[in-house]
Design a binder for these strands. Structure first.
Lengths: 239, 239
DNA sequence: CAGATTATTATGTCTATACATAATATCGCC
DNA sequence: GGCGATATTATGTATAGACATAATAATCTG
């Protein structure tokens, strides 16, 4: 029984997926170990490892040392969402980007914001509100607090030509961030600026970013009606 | 100048990230090639490759053969969102899961659904609506069409005890899917079932899944107010 | 000089081997 | 039989070397 010899890791990945789909290896099933698979596929163990590791990252397999590799019981859909810079997002749609700042002042943030930016002791923050427009039409309203203890340089920026969104990305590197998506009712001023009725559903992205342990900024982005985040799931099978 | 010798790929990843954050390597900068970095770090090229590949997958670097590796110009936040089975999601919150089916009938879907499930020629589909409850409270309303040409077995399932969501995941493997997130106004029956006012903002997930080129199902999940998808971004630095 | 061909280069990957590490299984002891 | 020490096992990772591949740069040719 001379095997067709799977020579690259994608081919092995596809074959493993095929067996999962064909229920040769049903959910929960412990699959053969890397050495055996390498022998069966006629390749090095490192190649099998590469294929299985990729499948584990995609959520199809669960791997534990000594315990082995099993087919995931709950095949969660693991989608990767790219959240681009707003200017980029608009220009990628073939529309022209404009930007209008509405307010900019230094203040102590409300406790809800303090909890995220400076949980230990309140510090001065820069509060900026602005609107991003696509071909002249309101696209997203930005309500941002910048931690001046982490980013003192922000105090010297007036943000009337370049948005805080872009300035921060270009100036202040971050190590990690929290993001959440919700559907909320458009509040007063927000609704007016987005050109929608009060109480209309708006898609909201809340994001807080840090540089190591120091919070940089927290922002609420409320998108005009019709906004949709698209993504896809699925193992990168060469269909 | 004896280097500290970076012996594992995570250490190399951290060092590369440090240089990016420190603006030693600003956005757009072409970093040294793998051979040089391996020499500098005192490790094998494969180890450098592992570190850089991981950073490229995270969106921090852009790599092209021959052209080399450069720091990403637009550091898009690449977030991975796990979309679990609904029962799992509710039970993970420590709440009890219940399920109520509302309607189930075989019919030709409307054109908007046909476009996704059977673009070539209309086929019979199973239309199921149901409500998932967390500790007795409405959690998410499910409006699903199942392609009977792809999944004929679904016609024999009444879905009164097990939800279509779970049955499909356990029975029909899929290769890939489209997902989108929107904020929409709760429509009539939907609003009543979710226990919210009509027109109230609901978070909606639309998903269509395929097995290779054959569409399996398309579903609209509208979540009760307060629903929030959380995720995080950031390179896996060992902070 | 334009266009086609060839050389160069950096990443992509495979191999074989070795050792590290975490988790389980087993054994010996009380 | 219960419990702690030890052996075993599968994955995780590092290494040096090799060849593949894509994209660019250089060169040749009409």
């Amino acid at each position: 029984m001379s095997q067709p010899r799977f020579r690259n890791w994608q081919a092995i990945q596809d074959e493993v997926l095929r067996r999962i789909h064909a229920r040769d290896w049903p959910p929960g099933h412990v699959i053969p170990n890397e050495v055996d698979l390498a022998a069966e596929f006629g390749c090095a163990r490192a190649t099998v490892n590469r294929a299985l590791r990729a499948l584990a990252e995609a959520g199809m397999l669960e791997r534990r040392r000594k315990a082995g590799t099993r087919v995931a019981l709950h095949p969660v859909s693991r989608a990767t969402v790219d959240i681009p810079v707003i200017r980029q997002e608009i220009e990628d749609r073939g529309q022209s980007y404009t930007y209008r700042m509405f307010s900019r002042k230094i203040a102590r943030p409300p406790v809800s914001i303090q909890a995220r930016l400076c949980p230990d002791s309140p510090v001065d923050c820069l509060h900026v509100t602005a609107l991003h427009l696509a071909s002249g039409v309101a696209y997203v309203f930005e309500d941002r607090w910048i931690n001046l203890a982490t980013v003192p340089a922000a105090a010297n920026q007036n943000f009337d030509t370049i948005s805080a969104n872009e300035w921060l990305l270009a100036t202040v590197p971050y190590t990690h961030g929290d993001i959440s998506f919700t559907a909320e009712a458009a509040a007063g001023a927000e609704a007016d600026l987005l050109g929608t009725a009060r109480g209309a559903p708006v898609f909201v992205i809340d994001r807080t970013t840090w540089d190591h342990d120091r919070a940089i900024t927290t922002v609420r982005l409320s998108y005009a009606p019709g906004y949709r985040i698209r993504t896809s799931v699925g193992t990168p099978v060469s269909v």
